[in-house]
Nucleic acid binder design. Structure first.
Lengths: 188, 188
DNA sequence: GTCTATACCTCGATAGAC
DNA sequence: GTCTATCGAGGTATAGAC
C-alpha cells in the first residue's frame, strides 16, 4: 500500500524539505532522492505546490477536525483544557510536517491557498482562547499559549529523546500555565 | 548619518524581506525600492548573504550580549528571571528583524554561518534554563519557554496594538509560567 | 558610486518518444 | 510511468564604461 511511487515521493520530499526548507528543496533533488527524474515526478504531481499541499493536508485536516465547532463552544476553563488537548494531539500526530511548516511560513507565502486555512484555524483558536471580552494581555497570552504548542517542533530537534506521551502532557500543562495567569482561568 | 545608500538598502531590504521572505526577496526588487540598480547594490554588499547578515547582526549582537557569561552563572529562580528578562528585551528591541527571522529559518538553511551563532545561543539558553540535572520535562519546558518569546513575532502580527512594555511583561510572566516558576521559583 | 550589459546557473514546467 | 531534451523566467554575480 505504501510502496507506490507517490508515497516514495512524499517521503523523499519530507526529508529534503526538512533539510533545506520549502524553497530550498528543488524538485530535481527530490526526484533524485526517489530515483526518478524531475519529469517523472510531474506525472504524479501537477506542480510543486500540488506536492507541498499533499504533504500538509493531513495536518490541516486534523487541525480543522480538532477545532470543529469551536466558535459555538462556550468558553470555560474546562473547555480550554479540552480544546488545547485536542489541538496538541493533532499537532503531535503530524509533528514531522509541523517541524518544517513552522520554520518555513515565510517561504510558504506564495502558497497562499495552502496557508489560508492554517491561518484561519490558528486565528480562530487565538480568538477563542483569549476568552470573552479579552484584554490585550489575554490576547497576547492566547497567542503565546499556541506558540508553546509550536514548541513541539523545536523540541523534537533539541530534546529528541522525548516520547510523544511526555511531550503531549508537558506541552498541555505548559500551555495551560500560560493562560492560567490571566484574571480568570484556573481549574485543571 | 542614516542618509547614506547603505542605510537605504537596509531599510528597503527589511521591507521587502518582511513582505516576501528571505528567498522570495530578490536583489533586483530591493535595488528598485532604493532607486538604484542591482549592480550598484553589489558595490555596497558583496552578496545577498552579506546583506542578510548585516540585517541580522544587531539582533545577534544583542542576544550574545544578553547571554554573555551565562554558562558560569549559577542557576537559581531569581537568575532565571533576570536572564529571561534580558533575553526578551533583546528580542523585542529588534522585533522587526525577529518577525521574519522566525518565519524564515527554513529558508535561511543555506545561510549557515549566519544561523550558526543563533542556534548556538538559543541552545545554550535552553541548556541553562533547564537547570541542573534536568529531567526530560524540564528540557521540554526550557525549549517551550523560549518558544514563547519567539511568540513576540506572531503576537505583533496578530495583536498589533500591543505596546512594547505590555508585550515585554506579559511574555516574561508567560515564559516563567512555562518553566513552572509557579512550583519551584519565586515570583517578583 | 552608479550605470548598462551580460554571463551563467537553477528553477519549475512542458513536449513527445518509448 | 519513465525517460531525454528543452523552454522561458528569474536568480546571483561580474565586467567595464562613465
Amino acid at each position: 500500500m505504501a510502496r507506490d511511487t507517490k508515497s516514495d515521493i512524499c517521503r523523499a520530499a519530507m526529508d529534503v524539505i526538512a533539510a533545506k526548507g520549502v524553497e530550498g528543496a528543488s524538485l530535481r533533488e527530490i526526484a533524485e532522492a526517489v530515483g526518478i527524474t524531475k519529469a517523472s515526478l510531474y506525472y504524479h504531481y501537477a506542480s510543486k505546490q500540488d506536492l507541498v499541499s499533499a504533504l500538509l493536508m493531513p495536518l490541516v485536516d486534523d487541525m480543522r477536525n480538532a477545532l470543529a465547532g469551536l466558535d459555538q463552544r462556550p468558553w470555560s476553563p474546562a473547555a480550554v483544557r479540552v480544546v488545547l488537548s485536542d489541538f496538541i494531539d493533532a499537532v503531535i500526530r503530524h509533528r514531522d510536517v509541523g517541524v518544517w511548516l513552522a520554520r518555513d511560513i515565510g517561504a510558504l507565502a506564495s502558497f497562499e491557498d495552502v496557508l489560508g486555512e492554517i491561518f484561519a484555524l490558528t486565528g480562530r483558536l487565538h480568538h477563542w482562547l483569549a476568552g470573552p471580552d479579552p484584554t490585550v494581555e489575554d490576547r497576547i497570552r492566547a497567542v503565546a499559549a499556541t506558540e508553546v504548542v509550536g514548541g513541539v517542533l523545536s523540541s523534537t530537534l533539541t530534546v529528541s529523546d522525548a516520547p510523544d506521551q511526555v511531550l503531549r502532557s508537558v506541552l498541555l500543562e505548559a500551555s495551560l500555565d500560560v493562560l492560567k495567569a490571566t484574571s480568570r482561568a484556573g481549574a485543571a
